[in-house]
Amino acid sequence: MTAAEYWDKYKPHRGEKAERRPVADRFDWTGIPGSGPGAEVLGEPKTALDLGPAEGENAAFLTRAGVEVIGVDFSPAQVRRAREFWSDVPGLEFVHAEACAFLDGDLRWWDAIYSTWGAVWFTDPDALVPRVLRRLSPGGVFAFSHREPIAGQFGAQQMGGKWLEGREKELTVYRWQYSAEQWAGVLKLHGFVDIRSEVLPHPDAGSLGTLLVRACAPR
């Protein structure tokens, strides 16, 4: 059993009718409709790489706006679903691969690399962040979001495979989460500049917000 199986079960389709695809009418960092900034965080890229796109709505939004986008996800189930959802969007490609392996094997440079509650949250930053920097164009944008961390729960946090309960072998995955200040330090250490990190409050008082981080490759 692998971590990819965990994401194969993310938002499973239930019922006999065809699954409805997301609307993709704006770029979403928070997962809360109408909340937070949009695609302007990425600047005006001509090319973009989405790490962990799942259903692919952000990638589809950017592609419709004229950006060349590739989404990379290591769940074959999510890649199949994204391809089916957006088969009518010309130029949008979804690739089945692990993020670090893709960045090692594909030597293109990107104007923007981003992740919305995706692979950046679930990959060791000491492995991923330097690879991202190597694949960004000079001045390119690296931006990502994940849930606001609970105080004191920083670094690699163990997650159980709750939707895989009852399987013969237990599955455990990890997510790497840091405070805004800690992420700024990680990115600076690896050579990023113009770093901005902030918590976007949840509209419901008492609920955790979204941590949004943006940094640039040196020119």
Rank of each mutant, 00 (worst) to 15 (best):
M1L: 14
M1Y: 10
M1T: 14
A4W: 07
Y10E: 15
K11W: 09
P12C: 09
R14Y: 13
G15T: 07
G15D: 11
E16R: 06
E16A: 15
K17Q: 14
R26H: 09
R26N: 05
D28E: 03
D28G: 02
G34P: 04
S35V: 11
A39I: 09
E40F: 00
V41P: 04
L42C: 07
G43I: 05
K46L: 08
A48L: 04
L49Y: 01
D50V: 00
D50M: 02
L51G: 03
G52E: 06
A54F: 10
E55D: 14
A60M: 07
F61K: 03
T63I: 04
R64H: 09
G66T: 10
V69F: 05
V69S: 02
I70Y: 12
V72N: 07
V72A: 02
S75Q: 08
S75K: 05
P76W: 04
P76K: 09
Q78P: 06
Q78M: 15
R81N: 08
R81Y: 08
R81I: 07
A82T: 08
A82S: 15
R83G: 13
R83F: 05
R83W: 00
F85C: 10
F85A: 06
S87E: 14
S87I: 09
D88H: 09
V89I: 13
V89S: 11
G91H: 10
G91F: 13
F94W: 10
F94T: 10
V95I: 13
H96W: 15
H96G: 12
A97Q: 14
E98R: 12
A99R: 02
A101I: 15
F102S: 09
L103S: 06
D104A: 15
D106M: 06
R108V: 13
R108D: 02
W109G: 09
W109M: 12
W110R: 02
D111H: 06
A112C: 08
A112K: 00
I113L: 06
I113N: 00
S115T: 01
S115W: 00
T116G: 06
V120G: 01
W121R: 11
F122D: 09
D124K: 05
V132A: 01
V132E: 00
V132C: 03
R135Q: 04
S137V: 05
G139H: 04
V141K: 00
V141Q: 00
F142T: 07
A143C: 03
A143G: 03
F144I: 00
F144R: 00
F144Y: 01
F144A: 05
S145M: 01
H146V: 00
H146L: 10
A151G: 10
A151D: 13
F154Y: 14
F154K: 02
G155I: 03
M159C: 12
W163E: 12
W163P: 05
R167V: 14
R167D: 11
K169G: 12
E170N: 02
R175W: 09
R175G: 13
W176E: 06
Q177M: 02
S179C: 01
A180I: 02
W183D: 07
G185I: 04
G185F: 11
G185W: 08
V186E: 12
L187V: 13
L187T: 09
L189D: 12
G191Q: 07
G191L: 09
D194T: 08
V199M: 11
S207Y: 14
S207G: 08
S207C: 15
G209N: 06
T210S: 15
L212T: 06
L212C: 14
L212R: 02
V213H: 03
R214K: 13
C216N: 10
P218H: 11
P218M: 08
